[in-house]
Design a protein around this nucleic acid. Structure first.
Length: 585
RNA sequence: GGGGCCGUAGUUCAGUUGGCUAGAAUGCCAGACUGUCGAUCUGGAGGUCGCGGGUUCGAGUCCCGUCGGCCCCGCCA
């Protein structure tokens, strides 16, 4: 017996009577003394092996010593199971293999945890023994799905005339943006490469090089704090095209996602997607990545600062602030304690305060005494609150109010299960401002410094930079930003002007981006593109809550790999070669 | 940088007001068992209660510190 000739999970009643050789891992052993059953699994699934001493005595005695996790090869005859022993829970449940010969290819210590999906496991132990974790069917499915997604993407983009081109991982550190991962240069003492935060400049250069349609499925590196949807290295589907505008990109990505959803989930998603301006998204959802699977939109209630006698609202509105609210559909019973907790939750997230109004038979609210019944009616009308609903309000600067209510909206929707989990709601977010201000009041790019301002705002770039709209766009799926991009600047002069507005003098612009400026002056075509977050997309498709579930070897919140223990100290000699000394701070 | 939750057999957890010789389930080991598939039955082994310090007659439990994991704010063009 030398080679397996079929996969465990593929066997069925049609194979009855044939002789097969299978190989895989022992998932379970049920030893009846004489009859021994072993569930053998490979990537395709599980099949039951039956060891009968009357069939093969030696083989049966080997079976007695087999254990979960051992790797074996087994040969025998596929038999239909007795009718009362059929297991409808598995695809191979109608048959079993009556084993005549078994080879132990490798034994195993008892596994740190079982590889069936039943038990909830601590992530710490899963990551330490990731190879065992990855044997679990759910993880096998997730990895398979991830592969199917990338396959569908390549298939689609290939048909659209794209070519995949690789860009360097050892590249140049750029100012602004995320913190770079740095790689010291042995041959150039004191100098460093940076791992790319994205292949942004290379893909623009590729356009200038005349490839017109580029894509790459590529790792990107950002040395920032981690979250459930953020890892220090993540994978982008990076795309760039020449001679196109926003609509071309939208159509392309809608087509690509349609293809991916059809190929991987058999779901037809409706296209084109809706789009929302950044401003409208903030106004209505309090987020630039709105989850549009449920309503609970933010409503404008600033008239409450003009009517009635609630001085806190009056003060805020008089000073240019606003009052907005969201309505929690009732009937809900919120205790005083829960309301206090929500208030604390909101104030911890930047809201100056959280006001609530319960529209019960009688209006219940600490604010009720400040308003007459007609204003309270108006409040109900403006917020859309009906009998039994609870209205939550925040007052303050527009930005603070929207962001706080946006987070509260998500929190409440989760708490009260208002989110239809089976839905896939896409939305384009457009008309972002080109700039925002940092703590010191300096202009910084909202997207990145290579994003084109919209044509009609170019004249006011220097005079009213805060009012300039960019040609950037994000694509949001179920409240997750799954991609973003822009039409780029393709004229040197405009690019130089942007650098200057960002506070970069000519010398520094030259030093950091000289190659780009040179390239832009040597026949750069109009171009633009997008980068899709593969991990997030697959996470949503897999119905998972964290991208770690779709990344084979993810890192912990402290950016540590629990399997390899990276990062780790290195030999003194390595440091010397790299001209690096460790500073004890 | 900050807020919250968590850490007890291999695993998942319980452990009350400080009284514990630290339990359960599962897994593991040995034996029994011819139709199981969460097999069953009998017996057994298995613990630095994350780590360090403190309070106390006595600490898994209280206090301080520290390490680690998760969620979030900041950060992430």
């Amino acid at each position: 017996m030398t080679k397996r000739n079929c996969f465990c999970g593929r066997l069925n009643r049609k194979d009855a009577g044939s002789k097969v050789i299978v190989a895989g891992w022992i998932k379970k052993r049920r030893d009846h003394g004489n009859l021994i059953f072993v569930d053998l699994g490979d990537r395709s699934g599980v099949v039951q092996l039956a060891f009968d001493p009357r069939v093969a005595k030696d083989t049966h005695s080997i079976a007695h010593s087999l254990r979960e996790g051992w790797v074996i090869m087994a040969g025998g005859k596929v038999l239909l199971r007795p009718a009362d022993s059929v297991n409808p829970k598995i695809s191979t449940g109608e048959i079993e293999i009556q084993v005549e010969k078994v080879d132990v290819l490798n034994s195993s210590l008892p596994l740190p945890f079982s590889t069936d999906d039943e038990v909830e496991l601590n992530e710490e132990v899963r990551l330490k023994y990731r190879y065992i974790d990855l044997r679990r069917p759910v993880m096998q499915r997730n990895m398979q799905l991830r592969y199917e997604v990338t396959k569908a993407v390549r298939e689609f983009l290939d048909r659209q005339g794209f070519i995949e081109i690789e860009t360097p991982f050892l590249t140049k550190s750029t100012p602004e943006g995320a913190r770079d991962y740095l790689v010291p240069s042995r041959l150039n003492p004191g100098e460093f490469y940076a791992l790319p935060q994205s292949p942004q400049l290379f893909k623009q250069i590729i356009m200038i090089a005349g490839f017109e349609r580029y894509f790459q499925i590529v790792k990107c590196f950002r040395d920032e704090d981690l979250r459930a949807d953020r890892q220090p290295e993540h994978t982008q589907i990076d795309i760039e095209l020449s001679f196109i505008d926003e609509q071309d990109i939208f159509k392309l990505i809608e087509g690509m996602l349609k293809h991916v959803f059809e190929k991987t989930k058999g779901i037809t998603i409706p296209t084109p997607f809706f789009s929302l301006s950044y401003e409208e998204a903030m106004e209505r959802y309090g987020s630039d990545k709105p989850d549009t699977r449920f309503d609970m939109e933010l409503k404008e209630l600033s008239f409450l600062g003009k009517e009635g006698s609630f001085s806190s609202f009056q003060e805020i509105v008089k000073n240019g602030g606003c009052v907005k609210g969201i309505t929690l559909p009732g009937p809900v019973n919120l205790s005083r304690r829960e309301l206090d907790e929500l208030k604390l939750w909101a104030t911890n997230r930047g809201a100056p305060d959280l006001a609530w109004v319960i529209f019960a038979e009688k209006v219940k609210s600490p604010l009720a005494k400040f308003y007459d019944s007609s204003t309270l009616d108006k409040m109900a009308q403006a917020s859309g609150a009906k009998k039994g609903d609870v209205l939550f309000m925040v007052a303050g600067s527009k930005d603070t109010v929207c962001k706080a209510l946006g987070q509260l909206r998500i929190f409440l929707a989760r708490k009260f299960n208002f989110i239809p989990e089976e839905k896939f709601n896409f939305v384009w977010i457009v008309d972002f401002p080109l700039f925002e201000r940092n703590e010191t009041g300096r202009l910084i790019s909202v997207h990145h410094p290579f994003t084109s301002p919209c044509e009609e705002n170019i004249p006011i770039l220097e005079t009213n930079p805060d009012e300039v709209t960019s040609r950037a766009y994000d694509i949001v799926l179920n409240g997750q930003e799954i991609g973003g991009g822009s039409i780029r600047i393709h004229k040197k002069e405009l690019q130089e002007k942007i650098f200057k507005l960002l506070g970069m003098d000519e010398v520094r612009a030259r030093e950091k981006f000289g190659f780009l400026l040179d390239a832009l002056s040597l026949g750069a075509p109009p171009h633009g593109g997008i980068a899709m977050g593969l991990d997030r997309l697959v996470m949503i498709l897999a119905g998972e809550k964290s991208i770690r579930e779709v990344i084979p070897f993810p890192k912990t919140q402290k950016a540590v790999c629990l399997m390899t223990q990276a990062p780790s100290p290195v030999e003194e000699e390595q440091l010397r070669e790299l001209h690096i000394e460790i500073r004890e701070d």
